[in-house]
C-alpha cells in the first residue's frame, strides 16, 4: 500500500487527463457556441424575415380576395358580413389592416413586412374603409347598389 502511494506521488502525469478533458470540453463548447452563433446570427434571421414577409403577403392576399368575394353581385339593398380568420401576429408582433378605397395595406412595425395591395371593387361600391388589428376580421358590405359601403371590423364580442 505504501508502495502504491509512493508510486502515485512519483507520477507527474496526474494532471494531464484533467487538462486534456478540460481542453476537449472547451473545444466542444467553443464549437457549439460558434455554431449557435453562426446559425442564430447568420442563417436564421434571413429566414425569419423571409417567412414573415411571406406570411404578411399571404395574409394580405387572403384578406384582399375575401373582401373581393364578399361584395355581392346583385343589385338592390344588401347586408353581407363575412368572418375571416387571419394570423393574430406576424413575427410575434401585432399588425393592422387598413382598407382605404381600393387600397388594402398591412401595417407592421417592421418596414420589411409592410405590404400594400389593390382590391378590385365594382362601381356599386361607394366607400370602402376599415382599420383593424390582425386575427379574426369581419367584412361588412351594406347598402343599395351604388351606395354600398365596405367596412372591416373586429367581431363583436358575445355578451358574456
Amino acid at each position: 500500500m505504501a508502495d502504491h502511494l509512493a508510486n502515485l506521488k512519483q507520477d507527474e502525469r496526474a494532471l494531464s487527463p484533467v487538462v486534456e478533458k478540460t481542453f476537449a470540453s472547451g473545444l466542444a463548447l467553443l464549437y457549439i457556441g460558434s455554431m449557435m452563433g453562426l446559425l442564430l446570427g447568420g442563417v436564421v434571421p434571413p429566414y425569419e424575415t423571409a417567412t414573415s414577409e411571406e406570411l404578411s403577403e399571404r395574409t394580405l392576399a387572403t384578406a384582399a380576395s375575401h373582401v373581393e368575394d364578399t361584395v355581392p353581385e346583385t343589385d338592390g339593398e344588401v347586408m353581407v358580413s363575412k368572418t375571416v380568420d387571419l394570423p393574430e401576429t406576424i413575427q410575434n408582433t401585432g399588425y393592422r389592416l387598413t382598407l382605404d378605397g381600393e387600397v388594402l395595406t398591412l401595417e407592421h412595425p417592421d418596414a420589411d413586412v409592410e405590404r400594400e395591395t389593390s382590391v378590385v371593387l365594382d362601381e356599386r361600391i361607394e366607400t370602402a374603409e376599415g382599420d383593424v388589428s390582425g386575427g379574426t376580421v369581419v367584412i361588412y358590405v351594406e347598402g343599395e347598389a351604388g351606395e354600398r359601403t365596405v367596412q372591416l371590423k373586429k367581431p363583436e364580442r358575445d355578451g358574456t
Partner: peptide
Amino acid sequence: AIERQAAVS
C-alpha cells in the same frame, strides 16, 4: 401571394 392574388382578381 400578392402577385397571384392580382392575377386571380
